[in-house]
Design a protein around this nucleic acid. Structure first.
Length: 431
RNA sequence: GUGGCCGUAGCUCAUCUGGUAGAGCACCGGAUUGUGACUCCGGAGGUGGCGGGUUCAAGACCCGUCGGCCACCCCA
């Protein structure tokens, strides 16, 4: 086909879906604000180096999923594959890190992956980052915040919190060595992907979906046994706080997360209702990242949630019933005199009742066809200007919907009474 | 990057073993001269993703390509 089409994996979000998006975005920003988080708006493009240094050179994201290109001056740029790196960069550059800082951001992210359910090349995240607090009460706050969000969205029953601690760098290195030593003894039993990861990114083998590999891991060394004291204590404290707040979770000792900058707490909210891409929100602590990117050593914790997946979940669970057009009135006018009168008087009505949603019929057409459009529009009332009305200085209000099994009769009133009568008609109709 | 399934009107799909495309919904018009929904009648709309091959003949078979879906990988 020679027609220009959207880039693979970069989807249009259509009018039928945007009500879900708007509802979701409003809910998230509302909850974030209620916990004192401030929005920060960040560029979509950053220096390629930023992502290499934060996410990790040997991760799949950096190795093969980034949209990278040379700017006209030869500098290598990349469409952001995730939000934390840019947020940290901005916090350092703009000097936001002197005091504890709670930030959130929203927007598109880009990863060159094969699209499937719940995954596309341009996708949208809302993320939150808290800087400057090393204690696990900060981790708890972020988790509580997300839990509140699920409740507000009506999907709390569809998601489960998985928690783990991956310790500090030294602990992870010690564990990594032990794990590799163990797995090398069983290298032949590993699936192909895990064999490849054995030396590049062995921790990732822990969450392999291969059942044989999982069986092998049952007798592998436990990450929990290698944790440093501080990580262990903080993890205990975090669990206490969550227990006290009544947030339930499951410990998943094989949850490791894919990005290199995490340490200590990692968590994921997962659902079993979206097929293979069940992670709907994920995050963790990254105490070394700020320093790693050139800032003064500052602890951080954060999470990001996938908007597409949450919208799917809202639709899947029916947590949000399809929102209809919510149109109050459809304006019908036949003939050029009537249209002139209608246009002017509807403008006055809009000034008097700014909250009204009114659709003005455009493009002409017969009386009948205009009323058909009025019906299709799902508007509650048709406002009719015809020859008779214009001549008499009146307008006809015709209720289009039934309420309580009855429909009000239409009435023709002087235009001066339009606002008052329309208000009464809409009010008496229970919607 | 790998694998499976799929690609016919705006949408959902049909066309039995190859013989030059159809339904439902949606859309437009009509059935009262100014009144929608229900009903009836009529109408418009498809180079069957694209390219090539086999055949007298292909939407149906074969190859390629592009695209979609789902899964692997990876991740939000």
């Amino acid at each position: 086909m020679s027609n220009i089409r959207a880039i693979r994996g970069m989807n249009d979000i259509l009018p039928g879906d945007t009500p879900y998006w708007q509802h979701l975005e409003r809910s998230v920003s509302g909850v974030l604000a209620s916990y004192g988080y401030a929005e920060i708006r960040l560029p979509v493009v950053e220096q390629t180096e930023l992502f290499k240094r934060s996410i990790g050179e040997v991760t799949d994201i950096v190795e093969k999923e980034m949209y990278t290109f040379d700017d006209r001056n030869g500098e290598s740029l990349t469409l952001r594959p995730e939000g934390t790196a840019g947020c940290v960069r901005a916090a350092i550059q703009q000097g936001l890190l002197g005091v504890p800082q709670r930030l959130w951001y929203a927007g598109p992210m880009f990863r060159y992956e094969r699209p499937q359910k719940g995954r596309q090349r341009q996708f949208h995240q809302i993320g939150a980052e808290a800087f400057g607090v090393a204690t696990p009460d900060m981790d708890a706050e972020l988790i509580l915040l997300t839990a509140r969000l699920w409740a507000r969205l009506g999907i709390a029953d569809s998601v489960e919190l998985q928690l783990n601690s991956i310790g500090n760098l030294a602990a992870r290195q010690a564990y990594r060595a032990a794990l590799v030593t163990y797995l090398e003894q069983h290298e032949q039993a590993l699936d192909e992907d895990s064999q490849r990861r054995l030396h590049s990114n062995p921790l990732r083998i822990l969450d392999s979906k291969n059942p044989d590999t999982q069986a092998l891991l049952d007798s592998a060394p436990d990450l929990a046994d290698y944790l440093d004291d501080e990580s262990r204590d903080d993890f205990v404290r975090l669990r206490e706080l969550l227990d006290a707040a009544g947030v339930s979770y499951v410990i998943n000792p094989r949850l490791v997360r894919g990005l290199d900058y995490y340490n200590k707490t990692v968590f994921e909210w997962v659902t079993d209702r979206l097929g293979a891409q069940g992670t709907v929100c994920a995050g963790g602590r990254y105490d070394g990242l700020v320093q790693q990117l050139g800032g003064k050593s500052t602890p951080g914790v954060g999470f990001a949630m996938g908007m597409e997946r949450l919208v799917l979940l809202l639709q899947e669970t029916g947590a949000l019933s399809a929102v209809d057009a919510n149109l109050d009135a459809y304006v019908v006018s036949v003939g050029s005199d009537a249209q002139r009168a209608a246009l002017a008087q509807v403008e006055q009505l809009r000034s008097g009742m700014p909250g009204l949603n009114m659709l003005q019929h455009t493009g002409g057409g017969s009386f009948k066809s205009q009323l058909k459009k009025a019906d299709k529009s799902a508007a509650r009332v048709a406002l009719i200007w015809g020859e008779d009305e214009v001549a008499a200085g009146t307008v006809t209000l015709k209720p289009l919907r039934e309420s309580d099994g009855e429909r009000q009769a239409q009435q023709t009133v002087p235009v001066e009474q339009l606002q008052a009568v329309l208000t009464a008609v809409l009010a008496s109709d229970t919607q």
